[in-house]
Write a protein that binds this DNA or RNA. Structure first.
Lengths: 101, 101
DNA sequence: GACATATTTGCACAAATAAGCAAATATTAG
DNA sequence: CTAATATTTGCTTATTTGTGCAAATATGTC
């Protein structure tokens, strides 16, 4: 299923330490943050943060909004959480095959 | 946090198409399955499936049980689902900062 | 023992990935 | 226009990763 492929890409995007750190950072932000602020949390070059954020945006994990010369990133909370929960449900889910009873 | 690193490794393990396919396959299995059976679902060489399953085992995603000349793999449902839900909660969670109210 | 089956390991290779730096681009401020 | 700030892009480099094949290992069967 192509759904599997899409989910795999989302998980891969989250499955890198610095990107996951960025996501955690965005987690704790009330509003959108710019890349300068974000790249501090994982102490990498600005260009690296930029690329990671782009990768996260490509998987719809973050949303980008331009304001002047800076870009503001917002975590796509609902979407990401929903994807993760859907997988969790599928894995431990009370899915049809409860043959034990 | 080293927890972030561990979670990143788990997500990375899940974030590869063939490995995720194996997980899905194991999802639908009642009991443990051997690698021969599993490697069919992603049409790769047995050695590749073996390596992927090993990678999954290293992140505690699957459990291995030896039976004779074959190895039986069981999905670690509770653990994986819990990890995914914990992240989901952190992301969209009703975490402390509900300043909107 | 010989042989079949299941899995792992060693090797090679191609492709992807993460990283930093310097240069380019965009935008704002003076 | 010039200078400063924020971000992206091009380049290079080192490392990791996924893959297949063949050989090795382990175990069961005859």
């Amino acid at each position: 299923m192509s759904n599997t492929e899409e989910l795999a890409r989302l998980l891969k995007a989250l499955g890198e330490f610095n990107r996951l750190s960025l996501v955690y950072e965005l987690c704790q932000c009330e509003g959108p943050e710019n890349a300068m602020c974000l790249c501090e949390c994982c102490s990498v070059d600005a260009s690296v943060a930029s690329r990671h954020l782009k990768a996260l945006a490509q998987e719809n994990i973050v949303q980008i909004e331009s304001r002047g010369r800076e870009r503001l990133y917002t975590l796509n909370r609902k979407h990401v959480a929903a994807q993760l929960r859907a997988l969790a449900d599928e894995i431990d889910g009370e899915h049809e095959s409860q043959k034990i009873a």
